[in-house]
């Protein structure tokens, strides 16, 4: 764990593995340090925005170093079951690239126990860790200009559900009717960081 300055009112905690990010995030959520304004997890880092009138970079560092946490502490998260129709445009391509049959790709995707590590790219777009390493593929060389809302996709070490229609370069496995993001709902997101997710075929 390294703690880096991020300007005058933020610190960036830098890890080697995403499991450590999830662990520290759960620990901080349980007992936030004085003066913490916002916590933003990402792939290998956690941004800690703080109020410089209430704490300092040095004090925040001292507090953060004292947390004891286990990697991938899943105790706090709720669980969401996501029904998926596996009819994605890239399912055949994923099968060909991984050497599995389409059925085997689906079986491996539904077998995974996933955790929302962080959000980004678009409101409610959660990066889910826990993907079977045998399904790891790079993003498409040319992103699609239009990916429909509800698309269930994979890229690198992550799987995700597109909350809204948007451009996108991930490999599309299928789609879900579950609205993972609805600004008129409170809360709007289904997939906040720390949420556990399971996919099942319909």
């Amino acid at each position: 764990m390294r703690i880096l300055r991020y300007g005058a009112r933020a610190a960036l905690v830098d890890f080697d593995r995403i499991e450590e990010v999830l662990g520290l995030q759960a620990a901080i959520d349980g007992e936030p340090p004085d003066g913490l304004v916002e916590l933003v997890p990402a792939a290998r880092t956690i941004l800690l925005r703080y109020d410089p009138d209430r704490t300092s970079f040095e004090r925040l560092c001292d507090t953060v170093r004292q947390y004891s946490f286990t990697e991938t502490d899943r105790s706090g998260g709720s669980e969401v079951a996501v029904p998926v129709t596996y009819d994605g445009e890239d399912l055949a391509h994923v099968a060909a690239e991984t050497g599995f049959s389409e059925r085997e790709v689906i079986a491996r995707h539904t077998a995974g126990a996933y955790t929302v590590a962080f959000c980004g790219f678009a409101p409610g777009f959660g990066y889910l860790t826990g993907l079977d390493p045998a399904l790891r593929l790079p993003r498409r060389r040319t992103p699609r200009t239009r990916v429909p809302a509800g698309s269930v996709a994979i890229a690198d070490e992550y799987t995700a559900i597109y909350p809204n229609e948007s451009p996108g370069g991930w490999q599309l496995l299928g789609h879900t009717s579950l609205a993972v993001w609805d600004v008129d709902r409170d809360p709007p997101q289904l997939l906040a960081p720390g949420t556990r997710v399971r996919f099942h075929e319909v």
Partner: peptide, 10 residues
């Protein structure tokens, strides 16, 4: 660089 959070002014 894996994606990491940004702030205004970065």
């Amino acid at each position: 660089l894996p994606p990491e959070a940004a702030v205004p002014g970065a």
